[in-house]
Nucleic acid binder design. Sequence first.
RNA 1: GCCCCCGUAUCCCAACUGGCAGAGGAAGCCGCCUUAAAAGCGGCGAGUUCCGGGUUCGAGUCCCGGCGGGGGCACCA
Length: 824
Amino acid sequence: MSENEVHYDVHAVEEKWLPVWERLDPFRADDDAVTSGEREKRYALTMFPYPSGDLHMGHAEVFALHDVISRYWRFRGYEVLNPMGWDSFGLPAENAAIRNDEHPATYTYGNIETQAASMKRYGVSFDWSRRLHTSDPEYYRWTQWLFLKFRERGLAYRKNSPVNWCPNDQTVLANEQVLADGTCERCGAEVTKRELTQWYFKTTEYAQELHDCLDELQKTWIGKVVNAQRNWIGRSEGAHVTFEVEGRDPITVFTTRPDTLWGATFMVVAADAKLAAELVSDDQRQALDDYLVEVRKASDIDRLATDRPKTGVFLGVHAVNPVNGERIPVWASDYVLADYGTGAIMAVPAHDQRDLDFARAMDLPVRMVVDTGEEDPATSGIATNGNGTYVSSGPLDGLADKAAGIHKVVELLEADGHGSGTVNFRLRDWLLSRQRYWGAPIPVIHCPVDGEVPVPEDQLPVELPELRGADLKPKGTSPLGAATEWVNVECPTCGGPATRDTDTMDTFVDSSWYFFRYLSPNDDTQAFDPALAKAWGPIDLYIGGDEHAVLHLLYARFFTKVLRDMGLIDWDEPFSAYLSQGKVINNGRKMSKSLGNGVSLGEQLDEFGVDAVRLTLVFASPPEDNIDWADVSPAGSARFLQRAWRLSGDVTSAPGTDPAGGDVALRKVTHKTVHEAAHLLESYRFNVVVARTMELVNATRKAIDSGCGPADPAVREAAEAVAILLSLVAPYTAEEMWERLGHQPSVAQTAWPTVDPALLVEDAVTAVVQIQGKVRGRLEVSPDISEADLEAAALADPAVQKAIDGREVRKVIVRAPKLVNIVV
RNA sequence: GCCCCCGUAUCCCAACUGGCAGAGGAAGCCGCCUUAAAAGCGGCGAGUUCCGGGUUCGAGUCCCGGCGGGGGCACCA
């Protein structure tokens, strides 16, 4: 045996097959096959990357996982759409351009080429004919068009309000881009607030539906992502209650506990809300102004500390409690948020800890109206919010059920017009404008006569002016403002002098609809072809990282619902199933430059080859678990691939040999493996598929060396099954095997092996005999043995009789053919 | 504080609707090969299924209560 036959050169193999795949182009999706109904479709999608440098281990993992299912679907005869592109607008390119005095496109498109070459080497079954880049004018023309359509429907609008501002990136941020600790998710700087006029998408319009559809998605999406979305949308049921105010307009509050209305001893409005300024008496105006100065000094980080002492100021006015006519004072405080609910609350200090803290700080009365058996909050300082008996609550007195109490109060309020049951959401509208250059310009013209004027559709795209280097330096206003020739235009309506909107769109807008553009990426007459959307949509499996659990997935769901309401598609949710991939870490920690524990994908590929790295990532754990590179063994993967490959060289029977007469034991292993693999693949348990393939390799090796021998047709059948299974993860090795087995490339173009049900049936199975649930004997029985026969056989077994030891048999549970449990 | 997920051999992980705790890999140990070592090849072992209750003929699996880890939301009324 020559050296050449025990090993293959992983790098030579990569160079050998890349041009072959390029020529055969086996992964191009055929629209006609799907629109004609000739073949059933599958749309496989993985999150397209941002082009920052070359691919890293995280990309490698998600592409490897994604390719398993794509290739499997193709084997099963589906027409598979598996596109790839780039999310190529964004800040890193702009920052690099400033640093290097160049155009952001230089960095962007340079990296795209690098990544594209790496992806091809990595052997993912993408349909490259559908490649797109969101920074191409041909793409962002349609991003702009969608913006205008949203605006026509009242779903894109401008408003002035306090917004998140990143002092480092010098731009506004969406709520979703501010981390829980008040820092910028991109650069870590402490986010501040600014009062600015900005563009918003009206995501709140769809809050209810975005929430409700999660029930259905729960079945096919990974649970933690559904949970994260549900928390983010933050639906809460309650009531609006209106309080009359002496000498002012009435105040409406949102509360989840209308049943505690009799315990409301004061009201609080958000200090920074317009409402506070409207309500305040002349006497107290100065006090409120002074308080506002204090409040604005506090940073967001301070505000987020929940144990901060309560502060506030009396507004000098009183409201009337609608259920008992009681006169209660109205206060302003920063513990009430201006942009949640109505920006005002009724305070029930006995049953809400925040209100109680405030009452104690301001010496306001505390009145218990639900007796839970715990100590009175007025004395304990601990608010009670559990179930209990209502007291001092008029018609509720004596009732002891919270749900019934809430229901009854809502009925009373609705009857006399003081309130109504309602639902409130934590979700806010999506702030989409950014004061940066490298994004899609907002296609609106501001005219002193006509106001906001949309750019006419036939003038799209509004292309970015040519700016570079220092022109892009952040200065707090959009860099586009400096392009005077670009900014100053004629008003499309009146022809007078006007200016372009100088903001660009959040890059999450670009990625909210890219999966539609893949359907017809070169169409210059429409954003996408609705007929193709009907044929290919929705996406059957989307794989991506948890970091997009709320942001991108929520925005894409929102876009999909709007496109449906525009009549362009006929489905409600974009992603039928969602699988999140874990992170690749090293030595228990996230890979990072500062920790010096980064693992270079390129180096791993050079050392072990593409297939071994892919196999390692798929085999290491279930897809959603993190992979610690210190715990896995790419060398072991490479070893296994060599072992598998050697099988193909040992087979001596001719291609096409009928396996029917082959070794039955090996055939059974093969058929069982293929059968189970299909089942596992459909539930995305890819790591187990690899383990099963390893078992088949081991069994085949044994058959060759010490069983039926290499000439047996069952060995060929097994080796071919290995090649096909392996091609899901290790396409180069599989291709080599397929060729050595005497077939034409490509293994990707063959079909999934047909399973013979007769070979799935065992000749004999081991039935376990338990006594008192403990295993006391084993019997070899026929798989179709009757329960009566199995029971008789078990009781006749000498070992079993010995274990029973003459005791009386009280009950026998039989689960033919696997188990008998005897109770004595 | 509220809401989700997880806990199996030294490590990463299997175990279909409750039915023999173990598939696969890593590390370890023992052989073979080698002048020797590494690589390679062959083989081997290992358990309070986190803890405590419950349901059941039978629980890693279902229920309740803890402990530990991870994640989401959070002055959201």
